[in-house]
Design a protein around this nucleic acid. Structure first.
Lengths: 203, 203
DNA sequence: GTAAAATCCTGCACTTACTGCAAGTTTGCA
DNA sequence: TGCAAACTTGCAGTAAGTGCAGGATTTTAC
């Protein structure tokens, strides 16, 4: 996973309380349901004051689906690090697969819990998408940089949004089927690269 | 637009208060900013009690980006109404373009206001996406029905999500460039159909 | 190593969001 | 006309979320 070697005590503590709050939120909501868990409960479980909770998250839902503030830059770097002979779409594909592998290797159970919680509380879909949106911005920046177009051009925007769509579909299917996330994501990205051509009829 | 001929007094009044609340919300937020407008203000402007507001919308943000409850079924019907000799992706393309044309012809200024508000308050992106998500569900249902696959198969899910992505990109660009929404949406959908192939370099 | 500066945590007070309930009012229907 | 269903409203209460100021902790500079 991500290493945080040379980092002050203060930053380390901040990271700790942030993940403590996030984990407590997911665990408590998975157990008791979204609206039977208060910010006070979460704060108590993480051993900080309720007021401090709001120094880290904008609300309960942000704590559950906390947008990892480092994921965006990391994804952008992965896109730029792909071999130059890959097409842009292929580079995005590889970057996404790498990120998923790294993230899952790290926190597998946490992600499964999160998906279970989202399934039980569709309200959270909003936060899930907007969190993905922040990620998407960094992804678009990386794509634009790699391809030499402005970040507000149609191509980077669309490739980023389509990759995000493929990701969401893969995660959705992952939570309802037993297939590995890697395979589902690869399948979706391939379908996208084929121009969403007619699928094989299976009748 | 949509005609509501044979409809009781009661349903007509409900529609009226709903749109009154929605319009008031957009107008007030555009003028004073999102967090300088309370639910009480919106209710007063629409001439109903604050308590009634919550009978129509789950919150301030839902009122601004109110998901039109009829848009989903309408879009689904459009997909199914396309000529049978069109590919599925092409049918989705035509359905979306039709819907955009109809919607804009109806409420052009309202949509422009909405987009301005969203640009000024990125928090609303969450609701915008989740609203689009509800729409997407109906779209996916239509696609699945047309293509004869279950609605939780990868192909319908991905085509729906990708179409949603194209739509969001087109709307985003529409609010920052002066080009017609129809053209921007068509461009994005074409790019998608081409498998997101490398764009024309313009150096 | 110590003092000053920066940053973080916390409690308090306050506004707003949101929900259940029960009563009153309006509409639909026979 | 009169009954049933649906809509609106006020009230009361819980929880969310924010500004502020004081105290504690870490960092930086000397």
């Amino acid at each position: 996973m991500t290493t945080h070697a040379a980092e002050g005590l203060r930053d380390r503590k901040k990271r700790q309380t942030r993940t403590a709050l996030g984990h407590a939120a997911v665990r408590l909501v998975a157990e008791h349901g979204l609206d039977h868990v208060t910010v006070e409960d979460i704060s108590a479980a993480a051993d900080v004051s309720p007021r401090t909770f709001f120094n880290y998250f904008a609300g309960k839902e942000d704590a559950v689906l906390g947008p990892d503030p480092e994921a965006g830059p990391r994804l952008r770097a992965r896109v730029l690090a792909q071999p130059a002979d890959l097409s842009t779409a292929a580079a995005v594909r590889e970057a996404l697969l790498e990120e998923v592998a790294a993230e899952l290797a790290d926190d597998r159970e946490l992600w499964l819990l999160r998906m279970r919680v989202v399934q039980q509380h569709p309200v959270l879909l909003a936060k899930l998408f907007s969190g993905g949106e922040a990620l998407e911005r960094d992804l678009v920046a990386g794509i634009a940089e790699r391809v030499g177009l402005p970040a507000d051009d149609t191509y980077p925007l669309l490739l980023g949004a389509a990759a995000g769509a493929a990701f969401r579909v893969a995660v959705t299917r992952w939570s309802s089927t037993a297939a590995p996330l890697h395979d589902l994501l690869a399948e979706a990205l391939d379908l996208l690269a084929a121009g969403l051509a007619e699928p094989p009829r299976q009748s």
